[in-house]
Amino acid sequence: MVRGRTTAPAGLTLGHEITGEVIETGRDVEFIKEGDLVSVPFNIACGRCRNCKERHTGVCENVNRERPGAAYGYVDMGGWHGGQADYAVVPYADFNLLKFPADRDTVMEKLPDLAMLSDIFPTGYHGAHTAGVTTGSTVYVAGAGPVGLACATACLLLGAAVVIVGDMNERRLEQARGFGCETIDLSEHGDVGAQIEQILGVPEVDAAVDCVGFEARGQGHEGAGTEQPATVLNTLMDVARPAAGLGIPGLYVTGDPGASDENAKEGQLGLRIGLGWAKSQYFVTGQCPVMTYNRQLMMAILYDRVQIARNVNASVIPLEQAPQGYAEFDRGAARKYILDPHGMVGAAA
């Protein structure tokens, strides 16, 4: 959206990862009170439709006229304004908001970690959980951006024995190594299976997660730099063992006007589905239903079982510096930026 690649309308306030303090409540809000410190799941959900009642809050049927599912400040997701602003409005607040139960001082101390609960930590956890990561698993995570680093963190939290992260950005790979991951530099090595074999002794893993999505690029000296949107999915099918799970929290779109070929512009990719079928692998795709995970992950943060802000290298900047943050991230910064419009996070730090 920032690059102008999507159909997002001019004037849409971006920002689907929101954490904040309640300063006013609507007349129908019963349980959320002014002064509460809360996490806002990026999924907007009514809490009343069939999908919401079945905990599929990423595809709520009542908050987007075009199709199931909505999000703040996001293209084709209902037109709701986002949180990269001084204030934000949250509909169906009693259902959507996660109130932090700890005392205010504790919450403020852990705010950089708790800010990750609106999207990337649950999304990374969703990718790991749906891929079947458990005690003793070997896992390949494609992508060392913030979601990939959050997924690697989740894999370790779930008890994985070895977590291997692949990326083309050495700074981000260094960040992954900093909390116990093995890494593969995909700009140097196109054969991921061979690199996994050097680490594990076998060229396959128990589970694999795509934290890249439709902007994937080719791997190795020859392919690096060119858009090849099916590369990651095909690689995951190749390196995941038979009957393994593939978690796919990486974003794929139904339309991509800026794609490099006509098929990709319609969301059609050159997927080796026969390989996945032959290996009896299963795929789980789509938006993370944040409310399935956010409360448990909040407790892990509050009781010091995980340091997600450290692992994704969270950096607090004022709201006015958001354009600078976007530019730095686009150049490959190994950071997750927290915009702090009222100085609350900075003051707590």
Rank of each mutant, 00 (worst) to 15 (best):
G4N: 08
G4E: 11
T6A: 07
G11F: 07
G15Q: 10
H16Y: 06
I18M: 07
V22A: 09
I23R: 06
I23F: 08
E24Y: 04
E30Q: 14
I32S: 05
K33M: 11
K33E: 15
K33N: 15
G35N: 10
V38N: 06
N43D: 13
N43G: 02
G47C: 04
R48M: 11
C52P: 06
E54M: 13
R55M: 14
V59P: 00
C60H: 06
E61P: 02
V63D: 12
N64H: 07
A70Q: 07
A70H: 12
D76V: 01
G83N: 09
A85H: 14
A88I: 11
A88H: 09
V90H: 07
D94W: 04
F95D: 02
N96T: 08
F100T: 02
P101V: 07
D105K: 15
K110H: 03
M116D: 00
L117W: 02
S137L: 08
S137K: 07
G145D: 02
L149E: 05
A150R: 03
C151Y: 04
C151G: 05
T153L: 00
L157Y: 14
I164R: 01
D167V: 13
D167R: 07
E170L: 12
L173R: 08
L173N: 06
E174M: 09
A176N: 10
R177Q: 15
I184W: 03
D185Y: 06
D185F: 05
L186F: 11
E188I: 12
D191V: 05
I196D: 01
I199R: 09
L200G: 04
G201Y: 11
A208K: 06
A208V: 10
A208N: 01
D210M: 13
D210S: 10
F214D: 14
A216H: 03
G223W: 01
Q228E: 15
T231L: 05
L233G: 01
L236F: 08
M237G: 10
V239N: 01
R241G: 05
R241P: 03
G245E: 04
G247Q: 11
P249T: 13
G250C: 06
G258H: 12
L269M: 12
I273D: 02
I273K: 00
G274Y: 10
A278S: 13
K279Q: 12
Q281R: 04
V284E: 14
G286I: 04
C288T: 14
V290C: 01
M291P: 10
N294V: 13
Q296P: 00
L297W: 02
A300Y: 02
V312C: 05
A314T: 12
V316A: 05
E320T: 15
Q321T: 10
P323F: 11
Q324R: 14
F329G: 06
D330C: 04
A333S: 15
R335V: 15
R335F: 04
R335I: 14
G346R: 12
G346T: 15
A347R: 14
A347S: 14
A349K: 14
A349S: 12
